[in-house]
Write a protein that binds this DNA or RNA. Structure first.
Lengths: 162, 162
DNA sequence: TGAAAAATCATCCGAAAGGGTGACGACATT
DNA sequence: AATGTCGTCACCCTTTCGGATGATTTTTCA
């Protein structure tokens, strides 16, 4: 499946989508010229396709900024001891720094702690399962964990996970 | 090629593809009957329109997430001398009863939560690994969990685990 | 602008985990 | 004696994980 050298994949995908779109249009032109009502049909299809694609793109281009903000916006607030149930959890960024755990790795860890499988995590993060496994492996290594349950345990001990 | 900030390259490429698409469509207009050209034009317009909409939507989604995160990220720093963490944890026996989780199963769950493998648990409990797996399977079934991390998560939610 | 860091993806392989089924003995209840 | 629960163990099979390695792309930063 991956025999294609991975160049500028975006351009490739764009080209493919565009090509397929054009081909489809031209093909349907011959086949369905007579059918007038099919215009709305594939207009709608194209619309849905591009809307989904646009959403994906929007998510993608803003994702990085989001992670930045996540690390930057941490402001420290003194909380009295009797404050019960401090639900908003902020990971111990100091620990994270010293261990060299990246934002993405921590993100993966939290999803592991919630009981998701690698595949589910991959879906939620819009990456491949292989990528998730890489994040896992590196996070485990930095945490000195051999299993995900152990990683979660360690993460909670270190204040990285709620 | 670009002195343009790389962040917006995606959008740029997208726009270019859109332009190419339109150009192609208009080119084909000359080669085919004039009657159909409105279809393609319409499709292209709809596509671009919805792509823009999708991007806007994607941006909006992530922006909301950001604002949420911004309000949520509050970090307590100095929780003065909390009571020395009364370690004795009492599992919610009521929940355990209603779920029909046996003592041995809960014991296994606890060790799972501490990050042990089945083999290690078997050693600690002086039973075979198969037995541990049986306990796991039954506990997972009663908790509605498919993975041990999920079982741990559920167990903590239900007050079965510390 | 160029190096470093981070994120992404893949492949191979072995180990661990999970599902299903069946079975057996101990023990308590009925 | 019959029944039921619990703990124990085994086998088979599939899926998921984890380790090791190499590569490319994107982002950050000096």
């Amino acid at each position: 499946m991956d025999t294609i050298p991975i160049m500028k994949r975006h351009v490739l995908i764009f080209g493919l989508v565009g090509g397929v779109l054009i081909a489809t249009l031209q093909y349907t032109e011959y086949r369905f010229v007579v059918i007038e009502h099919s215009v709305e049909l594939y207009s709608a299809l194209v619309a849905i396709l591009f809307a989904a694609f646009g959403i994906w793109l929007g998510l993608r281009i803003t994702r990085n900024r989001e992670t930045i903000r996540e690390t930057v916006v941490v402001r420290e607030v003194l909380v009295p001891a009797e404050a019960p149930a401090p639900e908003p959890f902020a990971p111990n960024t100091a620990q994270q720094q010293t261990l060299g755990i990246t934002a993405r790795e921590l993100e993966t860890l939290t999803l592991i702690a919630r009981g998701f499988s690698n595949r589910e995590i991959a879906t939620q993060l819009f990456v491949s399962e292989n990528t998730v496994k890489t994040h896992c492996a590196r996070a485990f290594d930095k945490l000195g964990a051999a299993r995900r349950t152990q990683a979660v345990q360690r993460g909670k001990e270190l204040g990285l996970l709620p």
